[in-house]
């Protein structure tokens, strides 16, 4: 898999994939996308980098701690969103949203508590997939 062509393509494609995944995450509440899809897309990007470069460029093993941290923090964020709902909304995971008018671009933007929850989902999916990959890859 570590042919020159593949590596060159990955160099260009993976940043685009990452950016696109963030785009998917942010627009999730309104248009196709969301935390789960975005998390999968980010991990797909990372998996591609792994396939192309293996352990040369990144020392994945040393980064694995970071990936464990990712999914635990994702879980924490989601849970805290739930607790926030309990405190302000009356019950666990109660969601809320507000439309805020953005001055310069003259558009209504929607801010939802669910987006924070979704971000937690994103971190968990991403963290789990990549941790899994590094764990299995480590064995080789």
């Amino acid at each position: 898999m570590n042919s020159l062509i593949f590596r060159s393509i990955i160099k260009i494609v993976s940043p685009i994939l990452m950016l696109f995944s963030v785009y998917l995450l942010l627009r999730g509440h309104q248009l196709p996308g969301g935390g789960f899809i975005a998390g999968l897309m980010t991990s797909a990007g990372l998996v591609l980098i792994y396939l192309a470069y293996g352990c040369e460029r990144f020392d994945w093993r040393h980064r694995s701690r970071f990936f464990y941290f990712l999914f635990t923090s994702g879980l924490t964020i989601s849970f805290l969103t739930g607790l926030a709902g309990l405190f302000w909304g009356g019950f666990f995971l109660k969601s809320g949203f507000a439309h805020v008018h953005m001055p310069l671009i003259n558009e209504d933007w929607e801010f939802a508590s669910a987006a924070v929850f979704d971000f937690g989902v994103y971190l968990v999916v991403c963290g789990v997939c990549v941790s899994l990959m590094t764990m299995l890859g480590e064995e080789e």
Binding site: G28, H29, Q30, L31, P32, G33, G34, G35, F36, F71, G74, L75, S78, F79, G82, F92, L93, S95, F97, A98, H99, E110, A112, A114, A115, F117, D118, G120, V121, V124, V125, V128
Partner: peptide, 26 residues
């Protein structure tokens, strides 16, 4: 819920508890 993407709204708003447990299982 303030969202137009029904699939995502179901995941994060209506059935947030399910999602919570799903990521736990994950």
């Amino acid at each position: 819920a303030g969202g137009r993407n029904v699939v995502n709204v179901v995941i994060v708003d209506y059935r947030g508890f399910d999602t919570m447990f799903e990521i736990c299982v994950f």
